[in-house]
Design a protein around this nucleic acid. Structure first.
Lengths: 379, 379
DNA sequence: GTCTCCGCTGAATCAAACA
DNA sequence: GTGTTTGATTCAGCGGAGA
């Protein structure tokens, strides 16, 4: 388990090379999602976003567990039969999705209470590891006209890594920045897709019944992919995933069965302009900065040997030795981290923020010295 | 499907008589929930509220950034050997629950992403008919300390009738009144249980690791039961269900395995005073003011990435990045507030009034965009 | 008595690089 | 793989201490 955040350029470049040349990039593949995924190689996509059907009227692709064909318009088959059919369909496409997902990739699936519990169970059973369930709070849901239930005002997304210990990309800082510097929560309030964003067919009717808002895909992709990553959407519909991927400089593959949606999506994506790269940049993560050993600052004279460091409340102090080791009270010594932990009796400690040096304007964390040093290196 | 609302007094009276005299009313039954339910007769309760173990599968210790340790749920009752074992347990207790539920009764089950998909699947498989899934948005959830995921800020409740065509009670008007005369939605924002409501043991530690807030049960019971109805909670814990039932003039049965919880719950419920009947229909409730992050306007395309913002006198300008961060002159970046303060050399700055966008009619503060967005949300 | 500051806490599947 | 080292990481609400 681990988070890949702002990984080195080498890895990003590797990603671009990894994908076999024969992969159909930035294209809509026409066909059944399961069969079409079967034609794609193992471990070739960085993220999968899936908005599977949940009306159980899935057409001729569905078979009962015994193999017999299901007639979707035949309402004789009971609820349990239909649930079993839906489960089978879900497990099949998730199985293929898992095969073609890279080991450090993630999958997102969106649904409502009609199907999301089946999907979540199938995800866990296939070995995916749930990282979060996300609630999309619709700012403007359709009211419950009959007054028989609560207004169904949300949908649920499930976000999974490929396995419990798998690494995955999560752009924590970017999400925090997007939320006014407060951690992004698992509930997202976004308007439904309407107005000019809602695609219409030639008759002026909505082109697709469940077109998702671009803002939703925008947040998903900003959170869990890097520019250049490959995103697959096996239920492409009107191509919201493709449009947002193009806008954010991600590559994409769409799978869609119906020609009318392929037509609409193709036009839509062609009309979408990629963002300028400077506008796309995500927050540089601290983890990406080159490491600076404390000893380096001592060597450089930025923190001279023999100087004294204290914690912010001056409860403890220590002397900086020439080798970068701190000498604390009662003969205690250690690295900036080790001594800080030792004195506080804590399991661990970030010495960079714990220790401070005296300046004319007051105490300053030694991390500030490191940052100045880093800034100097960068020039 | 049908809703029993404002049913005639006759029906209410009938309910009171229906329950066999031998039913243990307003009592905590000590024992395993499945075995104990087996001893109850068919179709005897009007509602079931269940807060089963979540099967959290937590790993090692978790520390806050300040070094303190998170007091995690490590109780034996939350440990299951596998998902299969958990599923079997879930199906068994749901099967008994279904048997003792009246045909026009409803069941509520609460859970998190660890277990709720298993629960939802099992509910559907047992023949329950999902009416809504409800999201409890926690006003004050625990943050994600390591920055590895989205803050897990909600739990999910599933509300079911006994069958697709079953009648059930839903007090639509009560819910609407409770929500400032707007239909109650499927997402409820409520604080977690803390402060004086949180029960402590003799040592001053929390008596139960997962005590639910009374406000949650209050809303559930107001929505789906009538005074005099019988509510069963098979995982009674510290008795929130019993306390709220008593307060609202409902009858209750609790099932709990552990003596320490029974003891606490008994005291608690004895100390709970039933509401005056006239007071029973209203809840004072403060509505949280919606907070709109700048990034939300960027995501929504209201302020497109790449656009330029300036202060009112056009002394400074900055570019809006895709993540909602502003990129100013000389490589300076920051949030709308942070960069504004930085450029002015001020300790702080209200970015909403400081930054403006160009419009056909001149400069407009970005707060105006926010206000229009809020108006659209209708919140 | 009032206001401010500080500390504590909550159903959590919570690190990564290097030797 | 395993163990060690480095160092990254938090929000809202309540209540007690202190001004």
């Amino acid at each position: 388990m681990g988070v890949l955040e702002k990984f080195p350029a080498a890895r990003r470049a590797k990603r671009a090379v990894e994908a076999p040349a024969r992969l159909p990039l930035n294209e809509i593949l026409r066909g059944d999602c399961i069969e079409t995924m079967r034609a794609l190689p193992d471990r070739c996509v960085d993220m999968i976003f899936a908005d599977p059907p949940y009306n159980l009227q899935l057409g001729g692709d569905l078979h009962r567990p015994d193999g017999s064909q299901v007639d979707a318009v035949d309402d004789d088959w009971d609820k349990f039969d239909s649930l079993a059919v839906y489960d089978r369909f879900t497990r099949e496409w998730l199985h293929e999705a898992r095969r073609i997902l890279k080991d450090d990739g993630t999958i997102w699936v969106i649904g409502s209470y009609h199907n999301i519990f089946r999907v979540g169970t199938a995800l866990q059973d296939e070995g995916f590891w749930i990282l979060n369930d996300i609630v999309w709070r619709k700012a403007n849901p359709m009211p419950n006209f009959k007054g028989t239930r609560f207004t169904n005002a949300h949908e649920t997304l499930i976000w999974c890594s490929k396995a419990e210990k798998a690494k995955y990309t999560f752009n924590y800082r970017t999400m925090k920045a997007l939320n006014d510097d407060i951690q992004m929560r698992s509930d997202w309030t976004l308007p439904i897709c309407s107005g000019g964003e809602r695609l219409k067919d030639d008759d002026g009717h909505k082109a697709h019944p469940t077109q998702k808002p671009e803002s939703l895909l925008y947040r998903v992709m900003l959170a869990c992919t890097e520019p250049g990553d490959l995103v697959l959407d096996p239920f492409f519909g009107t191509g919201t995933t493709g449009a947002v991927a193009r806008r954010l400089g991600r590559r994409w593959i769409g799978i869609e069965r119906e020609d009318k949606y392929i037509k609409v999506a193709t036009q839509r994506i062609q009309a979408t302009l990629p963002l300028d790269e400077s506008a796309m940049m995500s927050i540089p993560e601290k983890k990406a900065a080159p490491r600076v050993a404390f000893g380096l600052l001592v060597e450089s004279g930025l923190i001279p040997p023999g100087s004294t460091v204290t914690d912010s409340k001056r409860r403890w102090s220590a002397m900086v030795r020439a080798d970068g080791v701190l000498a604390g009270p009662n003969g205690a010594t250690g690295s900036i981290h080790g001594l800080g932990a030792q004195l506080q009796g804590a399991p661990s400690c970030n010495g960079w923020s714990f220790w401070h040096i005296e300046t004319p304007t007051g105490l300053e964390p030694i991390d500030a010295v490191r940052q100045r040093h880093l800034a100097q290196l960068g020039e």
